[in-house]
Amino acid sequence: MVYKIRDKETGKVYEVTIDEETNEITVYDVKTGKPVKTVNMTIEELKEAGYEVEPV
Rank of each mutant, 00 (worst) to 15 (best):
V53D: 02
E54T: 09
E44M: 10
T22A: 12
M41Q: 04
Y51Q: 01
K4I: 15
K31S: 13
I25K: 01
T10K: 02
L46R: 00
A49I: 09
K31P: 10
G11D: 03
M41V: 08
N23D: 07
T26Q: 05
D29I: 03
N23Y: 05
A49N: 09
G33K: 08
G11S: 03
D19Y: 06
P35H: 10
V27I: 15
E48V: 08
R6T: 15
V53K: 02
D29F: 02
K12P: 00
T42E: 01
V16A: 14
V56E: 07
T26C: 05
I18V: 14
T17H: 13
N40P: 06
K37H: 11
V16F: 07
Y51P: 01
E52K: 03
K8I: 10
K37Y: 14
E21I: 12
I18P: 00
N40R: 14
R6M: 10
T38S: 08
V39P: 04
I43N: 01
K12C: 15
T42P: 02
E54M: 12
T26E: 02
Y28C: 07
L46W: 04
I43V: 07
L46H: 01
P55C: 10
E54F: 14
T17F: 10
R6Q: 07
V56F: 10
V30W: 14
V36E: 05
Y3W: 09
K12Y: 10
K34T: 09
T42K: 05
V13N: 03
N23E: 06
I18F: 14
T22C: 11
Y28H: 08
K8W: 04
V36K: 04
K31D: 15
E20L: 13
V16Q: 00
P35G: 04
I5Q: 00
G11N: 06
I43D: 00
T17Q: 07
D7S: 08
K12F: 10
K37M: 14
V53H: 02
T10E: 00
I43F: 09
K31G: 12
E45Y: 06
E24G: 05
K34P: 01
K8T: 08
K47C: 09
M1P: 15
K8M: 08
I5K: 00
K12G: 05
T32C: 06
V56D: 07
T17R: 13
I25R: 00
M41E: 01
A49V: 08
M41F: 08
M1D: 09
K31E: 15
E52F: 06
E48F: 08
G33V: 01
M41Y: 06
P55N: 09
T32Q: 03
V2E: 06
T42H: 03
E9C: 15
I25D: 00
E54I: 11
E48G: 10
E21Q: 11
K4W: 14
K4S: 05
V36I: 14
V13C: 10
P55D: 09
V27P: 00
I5L: 05
I25W: 04
V56Y: 07
V53I: 12
K12D: 12
K8L: 11
K8E: 02
K34W: 11
V39T: 05
V53Q: 02
D19C: 09
E52I: 08
G11V: 00
E9T: 14
I25L: 10
T42C: 03
V39G: 04
V13L: 07
V27H: 04
Y51C: 08
V36Q: 05
K4L: 15
K31H: 14
K47P: 02
G11L: 03
E48C: 08
E20R: 11
Y14L: 04
G11H: 03
Y3V: 08
T32L: 05
D29N: 05
Y51K: 01
V56G: 09
A49K: 11
P55R: 09
T17C: 09
V2P: 09
V27R: 01
V56K: 08
I5G: 00
D19L: 05
D19E: 05
E20D: 08
V36W: 09
D29L: 02
V13Y: 10
G11P: 00
K8S: 06
M1A: 10
D7R: 01
L46A: 02
Y51A: 02
E15I: 15
V16N: 00
G33H: 09
V27Q: 04
K34H: 11
P35T: 08
T32S: 08
T10I: 00
Y28T: 07
V13G: 01
V27F: 15
E52T: 07
E20F: 14
T10F: 01
K47Y: 10
T42A: 03
V13T: 08
M1E: 07
I43L: 13
K34Y: 11
Y14P: 00
R6D: 00
G50W: 04
E9R: 14
P55H: 08
Y28M: 10
E45H: 07
R6F: 10
P35S: 07
R6H: 07
T17Y: 13
